[in-house]
Amino acid sequence: MKLRLHLFEFEDQAWFPSVIRAGMMDYLRFMTSHLGIYQPLVPVLREALQQTQQLHVLELGAGAGGGTDGVARALGQLPGLADLRVTLTDLYPQPSAWQSIRESSGGQIDYEITPVDATAVPAHLTGFRTIFSAFHHFTPAAAEAILADAVRQGAGIGVFEGAGKHWHEILLAWTILPIMQVMATPFMPPFRLSRLFFTFIIPLIPFCTIWDGTVSILRMYPTDRLLALACKADLGGKFEWRAGKVKHWSGSQVTYLVGWPKKA
């Protein structure tokens, strides 16, 4: 699917009730972690870390987390990456959600409590930059600015989306995934009465999740657009860029763009 429509998502709206947003983020974090959506990216990230000689991953736009924990554990078990560390950041930090991730990771994953703008990352926050499930939220101008900031600071970067941008993924968002959401809701940590109420009594959380999931796929950048954004952000040709898709065990795909400074 080459079509890209920048429609609105509920979770992006300032007026959107935080209790509904929290329920949606809980679900996305739970499913991403338990289904291992980003596990196929381990070889891609391993090469990127080797190319940049980094043992620190700086996750931008981390939201409620959930994209990195399983991948970080898998990477940490590989030769030479036992000391890998991850720092979660966001323009709107969520330390209450990140605290449990830090504890369950045994300290491998930490977080930055101050706001971090992905288009202008403070120089003291170093490491290989990643963006999981969030790059589609940015307009082309903002997406290009994120990549340009990485080039300007000589920081490797990878952007990852948990879909391959196919029409059948929209069908899944309307059918199978809502059923999975309803079934999983009682078991999602942390326990929230509000999540149960707005799932089973007034089903705003499932409805908004279906809408945002559909729009997310329509907003995703296909691989050729990702490379085009990278080329515009890197007019001097300082970085090596790669884009592609890898297959998840379920048959779905994960889309990626990675870039790092060329060796002299």
Rank of each mutant, 00 (worst) to 15 (best):
Y27C: 02
H136Y: 14
T68N: 10
V71Q: 07
A141R: 13
L78Y: 03
L81V: 06
L49G: 03
L5N: 00
P189N: 00
A233N: 08
V159Q: 11
Q50T: 08
W174A: 12
D69W: 02
C231R: 14
I176G: 00
D224E: 15
A72G: 08
L125P: 03
E161A: 11
A173M: 13
D90F: 03
F200D: 11
A48L: 15
A22Q: 14
L60M: 14
P203G: 09
A228W: 13
Q13S: 07
G162L: 10
Q77H: 04
P79A: 04
S133Y: 12
L5T: 05
P190M: 03
K238I: 01
V159F: 11
F198Y: 15
L235F: 00
D12N: 13
I131L: 15
T175D: 03
I20W: 15
L41P: 03
F16H: 06
G65F: 03
D69A: 13
P40F: 01
A243Y: 08
G63H: 07
K2W: 01
A163W: 08
E169D: 13
L257W: 07
R85I: 01
R225D: 11
G65L: 02
F135K: 00
P43R: 10
T119H: 04
Y221N: 09
M24Q: 10
F16W: 12
E11Q: 11
Q99L: 12
A264Y: 00
L226A: 09
I202H: 12
V182R: 12
I202N: 12
